[in-house]
Design a protein around this nucleic acid. Structure first.
Length: 1034
RNA sequence: GCUCGAGUGGCGGAAUUGGUAGACGCGCUGGAUUCAAAAUCCAGUUCUUUCGGGAGUGUGGGUUCGAUUCCCACCUCGAGUACCA
């Protein structure tokens, strides 16, 4: 008897929606059958769906991480149903700081930590049922992958940017030009300090001199750069790795420091990076932030001649005009967006770091200037930002000559001028720029007015009065005065004219300036890509031959900088490159020196090599080309085959977080454009469409604890949040009478209290925001003797607040637990159901029961047999099932539209409506349920596969074509018209669809409810929109 | 400060080109089932009301027969950026 009972239980169990079993089964099936493996050769149209690959952190995934992955997976699965050959790969951005920090603390090799973390990630990703083609997995820290990161670095090194052809070209072509013409005719992007040279001098240069000059043109180059040095992290940071003056990771202070670093000449691509934004379908805010980051501004560069000190001294007693031609030793180049205001210049300001400062400062001012420079150098970036209001500066004692008026213009230094922007010098026009104005006011410098307002403010007879409270920075509403040849002109014409005149006298030209800086590419870290670079006997960098790649990371004893302050790679015992003919290897310093000292061989020129680069590449190196590598990830001969890149072309849909706007997404676009120039890729933008998924925030739970004082000792009482609310706001209607509120007694007895809100672990809280008091006491033993006043004895009502998900707030929800309790399909549906993909929205586990019971209802539709066994009817739906077809096709239409519009939340609702309707119709027809399974499968793939199999199919549902929508099932013969009065709907009326306007009006007007609404009034107008609405006005 | 985005029930959120505001789900209330609980099912749930209705999408104005949707001004919140000449 017991046996029979047990069997029955088991069979019922089998009939129920056993998601754990089903999900494990299909995940295994997909893996074993390589269901989602994409082929590089196919007759099908390609579609590339990409997620931003994760950094595998030790904490694993929380419920917020997979949001984008779920969306992209739905889209990928949908596209497969639509007949596309879909590439949907995944991998790991596995170089990075946390693993290295962990290595420093524990001595554990970062590769080991990384491997462990990847295993966790993989398990967590697998359990969510993603349709990734794992055969294409890449890891940035894998030598077979970073071989190609190094390879691209070499390509960049061997390239220069030709502004005539507007693309990157091989460095050999530049050398040829130098040999024939020197560098004076070529239009190339290069360092600002590049000297002019002729072909003769080029040909006479030593090889070291040539190499040094070429570095000024290469797209990746070594230069002394002012960098953001973070002493706490022991490394340099890129601008996008600094937030509010401190490091993005860890929040450590950052100082400016000059260091020899590899840089990427991304500025060569500034304009193309800007222009390219127009042809990609990326979110506007993201495009805006890239536009801001690139920061294009149009204006002019103007050269001011510095007056010779001695002459200046002598002429000081004279008028301000110097007529004698002078021998100008120095020139100051400034960039201005307002060349039209050039006659308003009353001083110049240089950044304290400007190289001319020390050269032009007069002996009298030397002490003041030096003291000022020292003071500003001490101020950290953060201090400077904290008090922008404080105006500081110093006069150099030197003067420049105004290019047109030839008047003397005093030269100041001030830290409001940034060394890194433009030329690090400005022509100060106090009447037209607020910062110049403030500076002038502060130091009592002249503020000459050059603006004549078109519409003078009332009460300002004197136009100069408009400068009383600040500069006039508008670009309209004035004509110029006191401006020589610009008098009477407005902004536009004056700008044009001023530039023309500057060009005429050879002291300026129109110029476009970018805020974008070249990207520093060196990091003083261990866990990153090694540079394929060694330094030769001249100290010049040399690239390793491609055939020696990858240059693998050496082993080190410790991951900290060396005692001499060199990067961690300085600890490597073997880190010299030694090459003899075609043989090359990494050796120790001793071995290298021994080989070199073998004079016979080294003199023959066959021995090459030197110390290898000690820096490693930054985090963004590996992520700047991975999307292309996925196309042909195991190719050891090429970065990818031309066949693969020409088939897959580019990413059709890229989903990831908006925090990568000015980092990864800008650098990747830069590399893509470079590779496009080199003919390696067919598209100069790597992703057609990009979507930023919103953040999922946590819903923290708080217990309210009141602190009373009893006999001079604190005394704590936990209280129901409802009870507390009604006590605080007695007027509000609530479940508590003020007088009945138990809290009242406490207050009467002990007087006033302090309120404390204590975070409670959200996993202990039920769907009604209550926590079992015994559970709470178990979790927080220190409260086991506290007093709890509650409505229901045994549980405490909590308040909730939205906060970022974080461990310390006890609001992190682990997907593992959700999968265990509700299944991956429920989790997938719920994440989508929460709201629009791009929006940030709070997670609350309580709500998942809604989608979970939807799946159970769906399951029941297919299990209407006795004992809830699988049953579908093969007989085509009879006339009574017309409704079922309507329900189905309504759903097909909506779901298809929703997926195309990335509106995944609304399709989940649509599925719910569909299943609710079919359940009500008691539909069990195969003709309906089979297409329904396909519709659901992108969202809830496991249950769909299981139902599909039960329906008798032997192939995965992912191969099934998407159901075709047919309009005919939705045609209605009548419409329930809303009847509005003055735009307000008052009642509805069912009328045939084929009724004419006039007939509708007549029928509606004759209706008793209409008359009742009008109450004898005569309508002024009746609007009838057939098939939509009737509106009666009057 | 500047740039961008968003404000709709107790909560997450729906609402085609302007055309029945609050779909769907959570929560809540009542009921069925159960020894009981869970699960499940049914009904109700924007506010207000004299049960006829009336008001209502951050605030104020405008366009329109009709506005959550379009325009103007303002308020609040969020994100990015910050002396960029």
């Amino acid at each position: 008897m017991a046996k029979i009972w047990l069997d029955l239980c088991i069979s019922i169990e089998r009939m129920n929606y056993n998601f754990n079993e089903i999900e494990a089964k299909w995940q295994k099936y997909w893996a074993e059958n390589q269901t989602f493996k994409a082929e590089n050769v196919s007759d099908k149209e390609k579609f590339y769906v990409l997620d931003m690959f994760p950094y595998p952190s030790g904490a694993g995934l929380h419920v917020g991480h997979p949001l984008g992955y779920i969306a992209s997976d739905i889209y990928a699965r949908y596209k497969r149903h639509k007949g596309f050959n879909v590439l949907h790969p995944q991998g790991y951005d596995s170089f990075g700081l946390p693993a290295e920090q962990y290595a420093i603390q524990t001595g554990q090799h970062p590769a080991i930590t990384t491997e462990t973390n990847i295993k966790t990630y993989r398990r967590q990703l697998d359990q969510l049922g993603f349709s990734f083609d794992w055969s294409r997995e890449v890891r940035t820290s894998d030598p077979s992958y970073y071989k190609w990161t190094q390879w691209i670095f070499i390509q960049l090194f061997n390239s220069w940017y030709n502004t005539d052809t507007d693309k990157a070209e091989d460095i050999e072509s530049l050398i040829q030009i130098f040999e024939k013409e020197g560098n004076t005719t070529v239009n190339a992007i290069c360092d600002d300090d590049t000297p002019d040279f002729t072909a003769e001098s080029w040909n006479a240069f030593s090889s070291k001199e040539k190499q040094a000059l070429l570095l000024k043109y290469r797209l990746t180059y070594l230069a002394d750069t002012e960098v953001n040095w973070c002493p706490a992290l022991g490394t340099v940071l890129a601008n996008d790795e600094i937030v509010n003056g401190v490091s993005e990771r860890g929040g450590h202070p950052v100082i400016r420091k000059k260091m020899t670093q590899w840089s990427m000449r991304i500025t060569a691509y500034a304009q193309r990076l800007l222009d390219g934004l127009d042809k990609i379908d990326w979110p506007q805010p993201l495009k805006d932030s890239q536009t801001n980051w690139i920061g294009r501004s149009e204006g002019a560069s103007v050269t001011f001649k510095v007056l010779n000190n001695t002459v200046t001294e002598r002429s000081r007693s004279d008028e301000n005009v110097i007529s004698t031609p002078l021998n100008h030793p120095y020139e100051i180049e400034v960039f201005t967006t307002r060349p039209d205001t050039i006659f308003g210049v009353s001083f110049m300001t240089l950044a304290p770091e400007h190289e001319l400062v020390s050269k032009i400062t007069t002996p009298e001012q030397k002490d003041v200037v030096e003291a000022y420079i020292e003071a500003t150098a001490k101020r950290s970036e953060r201090d400077r930002m904290a008090d922008v209001k404080t105006i500081t500066g110093a006069f150099t004692g030197a003067y420049a000559e105004h290019p047109f008026t030839k008047e003397r213009v005093p030269i100041w230094i001030g830290d409001y001028v940034l060394a890194g922007y433009g030329t690090g010098a400005v022509m100060s026009v106090p009447c037209g720029d607020q910062r110049d104005y403030d500076f002038a006011k502060h130091f009592g410098i002249d503020i000459p007015n050059i603006f004549s307002p078109l519409t003078p403010e009332e009460g300002t007879e004197d136009a100069d009065a408009l400068l009383e409270n600040g500069a006039y920075a508008e670009k309209s509403g004035f004509v110029l005065k006191n401006s020589g040849f610009l008098n009477g002109l407005g902004y536009k014409e004056a700008t044009k004219k001023a530039i023309a005149e500057l060009e005429k006298i050879g002291q300026g030209k129109g110029k476009v300036n970018y805020r974008l800086r070249d990207a520093v590419f060196s990091r003083q870290r261990y866990w990153g890509e090694p540079f394929p670079v060694y330094y030769d006997a001249d100290g010049m960098p040399q690239m390793l031959d491609e055939k020696f790649l990858p240059l693998e990371l050496p082993e080190v004893d410790k991951y900290l900088p060396t005692e001499t302050g060199e990067p961690p790679l300085g600890n490597a015992k073997k880190w010299h490159w030694l090459q003899y003919g075609d043989e090359g290897k990494v050796v120790s310093r001793e071995e290298f020196e021994k080989a070199i000292s073998d004079t016979e061989r080294s003199r023959s020129g066959k021995i090459k090599g030197g110390a290898l680069e000690l820096n490693t590449m930054p985090g963004w190196a590996g992520s700047s080309q991975y999307f292309n590598r996925y196309m042909d990830p195991h190719n050891d001969e090429e970065i990818f085959s031309q066949e693969a890149i020409n088939y897959w072309q580019d990413v059709d849909l890229y989903i990831g977080g908006s925090e990568h706007a000015t980092g990864h997404l800008l650098y990747s676009r830069f590399w893509q454009k470079f590779m496009f120039d080199k003919g390696l890729v067919p598209k100069d933008e790597f992703a057609k469409k990009l979507i930023n998924q919103g953040m999922i925030t946590g819903t923290s739970a708080f217990a309210i604890r009141l602190q009373f004082i009893k006999n001079n000792y604190p005394f704590f009482v936990f209280v129901d949040s409802d009870m507390f609310d009604s006590f605080e706001n007695p007027s509000k209607d609530s479940k508590y009478d003020y007088d009945d509120n138990p809290l009242f007694n406490f207050v009467e007895q002990y007087g006033s209290f302090d309120v404390q809100k204590l975070h409670v672990d959200v996993s202990l809280v039920d769907s009604s925001d209550e926590i079992d008091i015994s559970k709470y006491k178990q979790w927080r033993e220190e409260y086991s003797n506290s007093v709890f006043i509650t409505k229901n004895s045994g549980s405490l009502k909590l308040t909730r607040e939205i906060e970022k998900m974080s461990k310390s707030k006890y609001n992190v929800v682990n997907p593992d637990a959700i999968c265990e309790e509700y299944g991956a399909d429920s989790l997938r549906l719920y994440e989508m159901f929460l709201g629009p993909l791009e929006q940030s929205k709070p997670w609350n586990t309580a709500g998942i029961t809604g989608v979970h019971s939807f799946l159970k209802k769906l399951w029941r539709l297919y299990h209407s047999g006795p004992n809830a066994e699988f049953y579908v009817s093969d007989t085509p739906p009879s006339e009574g099932s017309g409704e079922a077809f309507k329900t189905l096709h309504k759903t097909i239409k909506k779901v298809e539209e929703d997926i195309e519009n990335f509106s995944f939340n609304t399709s989940v609702s649509t599925f719910m409506i569909c299943v609710n309707e079919l359940s009500a119709q008691k539909c069990n027809s195969r003709a309906i349920l089979e297409p329904l399974a396909i519709l659901v499968s992108p969202y809830a793939p496991h249950i769909a596969e299981e139902l599909w199999e039960q329906l008798g199919h032997t192939e995965s549902i992912s191969k099934a074509p998407f159901p075709k929508f047919e309009e005919k099932y939705l045609v209605e013969s009548s419409k329930e018209y809303p009847i509005s009065f003055n735009g307000k709907m008052r009642f509805t009326l069912e009328l045939p669809m084929d009724m004419t306007k006039e007939e509708i009006e007549a029928t509606v007007m004759a209706h008793e409810k209409t008359q009742q609404q009008l109450q004898g009034r005569k309508p002024k107008q009746v609007i009838v929109v057939p098939g939509r609405i009737v509106n009666i006005v009057g």
